[in-house]
Nucleic acid binder design. Structure first.
Lengths: 219, 219
DNA sequence: TGTACATCAGTGAACGCGCGTTCACTGATGTAC
DNA sequence: TGTACATCAGTGAACGCGCGTTCACTGATGTAC
């Protein structure tokens, strides 16, 4: 009843911000069981509200809810990478070295996230009726946080002189593919069950390969 | 009733080889809709048999059936790569060139399969109760056709002198990750919807990167 | 400041759906004598 | 070669489950006068 400085207008209307509460609960489901576990009824149950209530806030029902969770999961991954990059500001290093270190840090953060939060990782990249229908053929991957950050890192690599401009076009896909592929193989694929030791070594080795392929002299 | 040279003993007992028929039908489901579409009841329906009948041939029920389909899908992928390799025997080229060409052909075949048969591709790498339970922590990825072939190709690369031995350890994961990652991003991920042209260019570029990272001079 | 009314966020029961699985069964096939 | 019997591969009805979604509704909140 009190309007104690809640950011949302209309807070404490009935529930307050049911939409956020449902999205948060659904995030929990995604975290625990991946996209298939994002079940509208269960999210409502966890919030303590009838399933019907969700339709006030997610007009399209379950599809809408999953779409929201997917975006949130992508955002979390982006934030995780961002944090790794922020810790990467070694002042002594030269530009080339720094650009390489940052790419490495981002890649490692990506795989680390996939491994630490497999449910969210899978949700971030799941098929999703809502966004599929909205832009059936459009390439909105450019809006994905991971892609944006990767693109910037490659630009840095070129700007620092570590990587020749001729290799810049299409470079995103190769790097993203490698990091994403390793993540997928570790999380759900045939490389699941590998030890942490081996996993780290494998990732480090793969990133070495990426860096080498981007920075080595022409042959 | 006639025992006309059917390979299977007991052929035409009641149905004949119901197990194979169910597996084949389930492959069709996987092809059309991925692992979630592998539904025991529907497979039985397609074969024209009661759902219960399936339990005679897949004791654990749906999990067993899915496991079988998963193996079949992996085998198809392996066969597809094998075919691409078989077409790669250019007699004029030297060993180094040949080894590189073969790796490239295998990678392209992998992505091509993923794109042509997304349902089977997803099924080949889906989580699967049966095999997960059977070897919870064991690394049976070494038995996967894709891994075996990749391993051999890398050996050829070393043997031909194109790739230094020092880079051989852990090399599988990086290459597999790249190819698999691109496939996943194309099939279900943010790179879905890309044009065939761009896709080919991207794959070629990524494989160039792999080859460069394996064969370039130390820096 | 009070009151009538519109709106808006929720409820709860019910729907149809398709799934995996179990049960008691039946009828064809194979086999021992 | 016939016959009684065991086995084996199938049937069909039924179960419980949980889902997404719709429906008519109610009671709190906001608003016009």
């Amino acid at each position: 009843v009190s309007t104690t400085g809640n950011a949302t207008p209309r807070a404490n209307y009935h529930h307050g911000n049911l939409r956020n509460a449902l999205a948060e609960a659904a995030m929990g489901l995604a975290r625990e069981g991946g996209p298939e576990a994002v079940v509208l009824r269960e999210a409502a149950r966890r919030v303590g509200v009838s399933a019907t209530a969700a339709y006030r806030h997610f007009a399209e029902g379950q599809g809408d809810l999953l779409g929201e969770v997917k975006n949130m999961a992508q955002a979390v991954l982006g934030r995780e990478i961002g944090r790794a990059l922020a810790e990467c500001e070694v002042p002594g290093a030269d530009r080339r070295r720094l650009a390489v270190d940052r790419l490495r840090a981002a890649g490692e953060a990506y795989v680390r996230f996939a491994f630490a939060e497999p449910g969210l990782f899978n949700t971030a990249f799941c098929r999703d009726r809502t966004s599929d229908a909205r832009q059936p053929e459009a390439l909105h991957y450019r809006e994905s946080p991971a892609y944006i950050m990767l693109s910037g890192l490659l630009d840095e690599l070129v700007a620092s002189g570590a990587m020749p401009t001729s290799r810049r076009p299409f470079a995103e896909a190769g790097v993203w593919g490698t990091i994403h592929g390793l993540s997928v193989l570790f999380v759900d694929g045939p490389l699941r069950g590998i030890t942490g030791e081996e996993r780290h070594e494998t990732v480090r080795n793969a990133i070495d390969g990426i860096v080498r392929s981007l920075t080595c002299a022409e042959d």
